[in-house]
Design a protein around this nucleic acid. Structure first.
Lengths: 160, 160
DNA sequence: TATTGTTATACTCTATAACTATA
DNA sequence: TATAGTTATAGAGTATAACAATA
């Protein structure tokens, strides 16, 4: 099998939106937690990194600052996120999860993974390895510059 | 390397939105054609299938009918799509590309592929094969039931 | 002046509910 | 009555431009 960059690009363009649609619908299910994909990713990021600024969130999601600001508005209103001023630099904002936010994101991660797992369970182990490898390659290619630094650090330290 | 369904699910959940973000930004570039992802996918579908109904489009995109209807509204307003009544069954709508729509989707496909290709050109050929294989697996798993039938027919006929 | 965020404004995406027209 | 589609309404995503507050 050959795969020119163009052929690979064509497959990625066709398939990624398809998978995205399923992921969105799983996360949106009300009996789980009814989060949009960006909301899910924001809470997940805050859960991993602890407290951070609005700029950190915007970079992680690849959003402009005003978009990130309104996104956080919604999460604050739902009492999943706390927004406070940074006493060290009052221009800055410090974001963190509420305990409700923490519990909801854990539930959302667990249930979304479970439901996706059911689909992926139809594949052979070798096929799943192919998928995991492809995801890791794409992750390195498509992460933002800042994320790449973090990821590469993580990878090289885990290889020690 | 092992890959449980859950591990694979976790990777897919993390990486697909990342890739989606890049795809969206490429399609949105004004100097290309400034299409949203659903608009791009709609035009692309019409380009492949020729004339079809609104229900066909909604199924292809995984949207509810009203969502598809407003999506088409925008494309009709931009004169990229023609919407007419089906004389055989006047409840039905017949959708097709205008010549402008046809030329714009060709440009959009070409330029988006080119830009994605540049990223994928950093990989080895073997790594690109991994990605193409993963995309094909995911495509089978995540296509709607109706799309699956079409895809499987296409695959089996191309294997003759 | 440069940086961090917010507000204002304007589209698009997407869903559900209620409706119209046709079969 | 059942089907195909539209309209009404509403909340979220996203961007740019203009602004405010702090450094």
């Amino acid at each position: 099998m050959s795969a020119t960059p163009r052929e690979a690009a064509s497959e990625v363009m066709d398939v990624v939106p398809l998978v995205m649609r399923t992921i969105r619908k799983l996360m949106r299910r009300p009996h789980t937690t009814d989060l949009s994909v960006p909301q899910f990713r924001t809470l997940s990021f805050l859960n991993r990194t602890g407290r951070c600024s609005l700029t950190d969130v915007a970079e992680h999601l690849g959003l402009a600052l005003p978009s990130a600001s309104t996104l956080i508005d919604g999460l604050v209103e739902r009492k999943l996120v706390i927004r406070a001023f940074d006493p060290a630099d009052r221009r800055r904002v410090v974001l963190g999860l509420t305990s409700r936010g923490h519990s909801i994101i854990l539930t959302a991660i667990r249930t979304t993974q479970s439901q996706l797992s059911e689909l992926l369970a139809d594949l052979t182990p070798a096929e799943r390895v192919t998928i995991v490898q492809a995801m890791q390659l794409l992750s390195l290619l498509f992460a933002s510059e800042r994320e790449k630094e973090l990821t590469e650090t993580k990878l090289s330290s885990s290889q020690l």
